[in-house]
Design a protein around this nucleic acid. Structure first.
Lengths: 249, 249
DNA sequence: CCATTTTGTGTATATACGACACAAAGACAT
DNA sequence: ATGTCTTTGTGTCGTATATACACAAAATGG
């Protein structure tokens, strides 16, 4: 496939990697998966999993491969986040990183440890080790911002919950991601039910007080004409344009 | 800077380019800048301007360089769009393209023709030549989707208009980008004025009927805490997740 | 000076939002 | 049993916001 042609001789090439911010829900809190680096640079610091893109490999396939290597998970929600390319972000060489974020369900927890690095560990996003290696603090901020903002108008939260869940669990997930503020139960329930994306599973489950009804996300709704806006606990709308300004990438 | 280190020998590297979708307003319509390719592949087809990223060059600086080379413009709004990396998107070799979109003001029209390609031309987005070279049709769809969706909650439209403009012009710009449907004048005026981002310039200008008042965008509002939602002419919310699905990149 | 065109403003109705009260369903203790 | 406690679920009410639409204002031209 690589064939030299007239007037198409690219200069020295940067390396290209994918990094994947993997979110999940553990004990009702949002967590991300980090690896501890064994060698310099940034030895003994925590980093987002990632690796080189193979020459004939699509970008999101590379992201899925990394995800699978680190967690053993397949078929998770994956979305490209942003591409980071500051010339000095890796001191060894020019590395351009296409960052992704992934959401894995709370009930599929057969996460296997990785072989490559000394340690793999879930961290609550509220208690991340800092600083992370490379520019991964910045990537993490991007991922969290995106997750928060998309939560306001998509069904992303369902990707984090187990197959079957209760409304209090769903509500708590929203609160976790959006911030501290507690959402109003009545308004939340009404809005989510009016959206018509929930399917009752009839059963119940105990949790201290009155049992909560179980629901399942309407999987058949492949027509994603669904918009679920949540404004009550609005986070400061630091628009992406401003973010970009801050990147100076 | 490039130094070989232990256990960090990347495989053959893909080439990395930046492509820039450049939007402007010409005769009240949204246009994009395209180049006609002189050589294969895709000879004589139209393409989005772009080029290789230099080894020590930040990504958005590369995008600004391409933009400047093609249009002579500086200090325009620029935002990273998405990174396209399908292995076969360029038949010659593996090329990963970081796409950007730019908004240039209508009044700064000293666009100089390019030297590199045979032709440079503005096209109305409603009358694009098709198909474009490479996967540029897809990139164009992405850019338009992003422009539309960001128009609902940011001040992006002002980046397309000249320094001083009228409310009918602003309204028409929104209509152009959002689609066909005509927005309600009363509601639009009220909303935009309540947002408090307009500064009256007092003067007037003729246009057939009653003269329209002139306004300037409040530049001092660098604090982008401003949110301008427009819902009336809601476009089908094909969320980015769905878009990603469609990419299969 | 009256018709026409386009800009600008006001109003009325419907819908959505946010705060809050209260009922329902279990567990547990007395 | 009965009452208290806790959490879930539903209803309501005032307010804000959105949308549709009417009408006034400022020019132009016969």
């Amino acid at each position: 496939m690589v064939q030299t042609k007239q007037s198409f001789e690219p200069p020295d090439r940067p390396a290209v990697t994918v990094d994947v911010v993997i979110f999940t829900l553990r004990e009702r809190e949002v967590h991300v998966l980090l690896l501890k680096r064994r060698y310099p640079p940034f030895a003994d610091q925590w980093a987002i999993p990632g690796g080189f893109v193979k020459l004939d490999e699509p970008l999101d396939q590379a992201a899925r491969r990394e995800l699978e290597e680190e967690t053993g998970l397949q078929d998770v929600y994956l979305e490209q986040l942003y591409t980071f390319g500051a010339p000095d972000r890796d001191p060894r060489m020019r590395v351009i990183s296409v960052a992704y974020f992934a959401l894995v369900r709370a009930d599929v927890q057969q996460i296997r440890g990785s072989h490559e690095s000394s340690e793999v560990q879930w961290f609550a996003v509220k208690a991340l080790p800092q600083p992370l290696a490379f520019d991964h603090d910045q990537i993490m901020r991007f991922a969290l911002d995106r997750l928060r903002s998309k939560l306001e108008y998509t069904t992303l939260a369902f990707q984090l919950l187990p197959e079957v869940f209760t409304l209090p669990e769903l509500k708590q997930t929203y609160e976790q991601i959006l911030g501290e503020k507690e959402l109003d139960r009545g308004n939340f329930y009404r809005k989510i039910k009016e959206a018509g994306v929930l399917e009752s599973v009839g059963k119940q489950r105990e949790s201290g007080g009155r049992p909560a009804a179980l629901y399942r996300f309407q999987a058949n709704r492949r027509d994603n004409d669904f918009v679920f806006r949540w404004r009550e606990a609005r986070i400061e709308p630091r628009g992406e344009g401003a973010v970009d300004d801050a990147v100076r990438d």
